[in-house]
Structure formats: C-alpha cells, structure tokens
Design a protein around this nucleic acid. Structure first.
Lengths: 150, 150
DNA sequence: CCTATTTCAGATGGACTGAGATAC
DNA sequence: CGTATCTCAGTCAATCTGAAATAG
C-alpha cells in the first residue's frame, strides 16, 4: 500500500512545456530580482548598464531595442540611474529628438557590483543543473527567442 | 564598413540566462494564453481539468498542490469551471472543511478540446527547436523546478 | 504629412498575502 | 488551542497601450 503523493503532476500537464517554462521563470526571476533589490537595484538597471558598457553611448530607443525593455519602462529606469549618478543624459545635437545616454565612471563600478551579485544569485538559481545543461538551456532559449519574437 | 545592428545583445546580458528565460517564458505564455482565450478558457482551467482526469475527484487544496496554482486563484478557476458545467463541487462528508471537485462528462470533452488547441499553440511556440531539444528543455526545466522550489 | 523619440498616465493580467469563517 | 480548508479583498510588480509634445 503506497502513500499517495499529493504534489504529483498530471501526465497531460507534463506534456505542457509552456507551463513548466513559466513556473521556472517565475522562480528564477524572483531569486535574481531579490538579489538586485538587496543592492537597491533592479533587473532593468543591470541590463541598461551592461548594454551601455558593450555598445557605448546611445539613445533610449536603441537601449530599448537591445534590452527588450519597453520604451515606457526605460524612462523610469534611466530616471533612477541618472539620479544615482550611474548614467548621464543629454540631447543629441545631431537629432534633437533623442537623448544620448552615457555610462559614467561610477556607473561602471556599479555595473561590476551588480554583476557580482547577479552571478551569485544565478549560481543559486541554476544549482540544480550542471554546466553542460546550462549551456544547452541557453542555446535552446536563444533559438526560441529568435524564432518566436512577438 | 559594416552596418550597425541596433538589436544586438550585450555579452554580459547573454551570460544572464535568467533574463533570457523570463523573456522566452513571456512570449510562449502569451501565445498559449491567446489560444486558450480564443476557446473562452484559461491556462488554469486546462491544468485543473487535466489534474482531475489524472487523479480523480479531490479537494481544492490538493488541486492547488498538484498544479502549483495558488489556493486563491483556484477559487476563481473552479467557480468558472463549475458554471460552465465542466466540474462539480460538493462538501466532503469525511471532512467537511473540504470540497470534493469532480470532472463531469462535459468537462472531459472540454479537456480534449483544450488539449488539442494547446498542442497546436505549443507546436507553434516551440517551432524554433527540434524534438530532441524540446525533450532536453523539458528535462532541464523539470530539474530546476524540483531543485528551486520557492 | 508622416514618422521617430521621449514622456506620462493608466489598463491589464499574474502571482501572491492577510484575514475571516468554518471545521478538524 | 492549534491547524487546515475555502473564500474574499486587495497588494504588488511586470508588461504593455495610447496619446501628447517635440523634432526630423
């Protein structure tokens, strides 16, 4: 007489990767989000700083396209980053509709701090799988993102 | 002189699987959600019906544990499913705190309909990867869910 | 005239919390 | 008395839309 496991998943549900995907994403996002919150930061802040470091000064619109952060949420993120002195904004003389957003020196330091915190959180969040599986996961998700945009 | 790609992702961001995970999950969830919405249903409805079919009549608390749907959202889902005639609820005579939720005949038919719609949506959502990769993805996500709960 | 960028104000749905009523 | 279940009300952050103001 076996004990009944009241947390088992129905077969039809196991065949629904979309559900699994969303549940794991929720958990992982919460873990990394809390790590950044403990640093007084936000996921979007890291994404913006990393993108500025990689591609140099650029407009908010390009930052949005590169990070997949909505133009509207970008406004709030930059307002905050500017207030903290991590980025500076000025009107582009070539095209005065745009702001040129630049990483400051202290923004570069901030990026390093956040990167360390995020790496640690990520190691915890993905502790259940090995390095090979993590590589597979990233590769597969990358394909899905390219294929399935919008 | 190469053209500049304004949608490229920063290296530091590519090393952040958590971000990728959340973005892909958002897209896939929207696609499957729309498919069910077109059927007048919701993701949670499918999960509940599939779990009832797999494990038979059971309490709302057990449905919550098995589907990972919050007890609070379960109330709304069952209210709806009962109104549609897909499930029936009655107080458990053995333990009158609990409701016994049962799948009705028309609920079984409904489950089949939703299953077909979901499968189609899922084939589209995961069209970018092959069967082997999908299996890998499900296996990896399964490990992460077991390891990282809460 | 149409399009692009930045900004604001708000809609929408998802995950979750707290507390009350009831029953064990 | 403490715990479990069901329910309701409501918070909270995330995603996204629409429109205004400005500039090309």
């Amino acid at each position: 007489m076996e004990p009944i496991d009241y947390t088992e998943t129905a077969p039809l549900l196991q065949a629904q990767p979309s559900r699994l995907l969303s549940q794991v994403a929720t958990t992982v996002t919460r873990q990394t989000g809390q790590a950044l919150e403990a640093m007084g930061a936000h996921r979007n802040h890291f994404a913006v700083l990393a993108t500025l470091e990689a591609f140099g000064p650029q407009s908010q619109a390009n930052l949005s396209r590169r990070t997949h952060i909505d133009r509207s949420d970008m406004v709030a993120a930059l307002e905050r980053l500017e207030r903290d002195g991590s980025v500076s904004r000025s009107v582009d003389p070539q095209d005065r509709r745009q702001n040129v957003v630049s990483l400051t020196a202290s923004g570069g330091i901030r990026l390093t701090e956040l990167s360390v915190a995020l790496d640690a959180a990520q190691r915890t969040a993905f502790a259940g799988i090995d390095a090979v599986e993590l590589d597979q996961l990233v590769a597969i998700l990358g394909k899905l993102r390219s294929a399935g945009q919008r």
